[in-house]
Design a protein around this nucleic acid. Structure first.
Length: 188
DNA sequence: CCGCCGATCTTT
DNA sequence: AAGATCGGCGGG
């Protein structure tokens, strides 16, 4: 591993661009992320401290935090920072290494390949990630969901913006994505 | 308990 | 622009 996941999520976030996520249905490189802080970040699930749902967020860096949202979708996060802090990086979009039949079966109604994984709920559905994977170690080679961090992308390729879909702490510029990448999520 | 609403996506 | 769909969390 070439980056230190125990650093703050706002440092780890951009460093995770280009890393490869492997799930039950396939794999892809991360092209878009958002950082969430611990209890001091009002937009983070960790802002109210440890609850049954957020307990994995307060584990050691490298843990997977999967939450269920809008009654329908799952979102996947990489826990960062020191254990006990509750920081995480939301994986918002990936570019598949290869579009597999399992990914197409998991998202049968898409019109273009990009719609398989160009959003946090979409990529979890495509890769087959759900709450059963919550809390596992992303760095362990035996895990059914894992993270392979190779070379970082060139800083010149990285674009920054504010976070999407939140109603508080909207000013923090904690979203990063690869410029001109077709798999980055589309504005609503 | 009860009610609100969310780190979303699809359809109209 | 609104609907789908449900669990987590706060308030009473």
């Amino acid at each position: 591993m070439s980056i230190d996941l125990s650093l703050h999520s706002s440092s780890v976030g951009p460093a995770l661009l280009g890393a490869v996520v492997h799930g039950p249905n396939g794999s892809g490189r991360i092209v878009e992320v958002e950082a969430y802080g611990g209890t001091e970040d009002a937009a983070s699930h960790a802002c109210r401290g440890v609850t049954p749902r957020t307990e994995p967020m307060f584990g050691p860096p490298g843990v997977l935090y999967v939450y269920f949202i809008y009654g329908m979708y799952h979102c996947a996060n990489v826990v960062t920072g020191p254990a006990g802090d509750g920081q995480a990086v939301l994986i918002r979009a990936i570019e598949p290494n290869e579009v597999t039949e399992a990914m197409r079966t998991a998202r049968p109604t898409i019109r273009r390949d990009e719609d398989l994984t160009n959003g946090p709920g979409k990529l979890c559905a495509a890769l087959g990630i759900d709450r059963s994977h919550d809390g596992l170690n992303l760095l362990h080679t035996d895990s059914s969901v894992r993270l392979v961090i190779d070379e970082p992308v060139a800083p010149a390729e990285i674009e920054t913006s504010t976070r999407i879909g939140i109603s508080v702490a909207q000013e923090r510029p904690w979203r990063w994505y690869l410029r001109d990448n077709a798999w980055v999520s589309k504005p609503r």
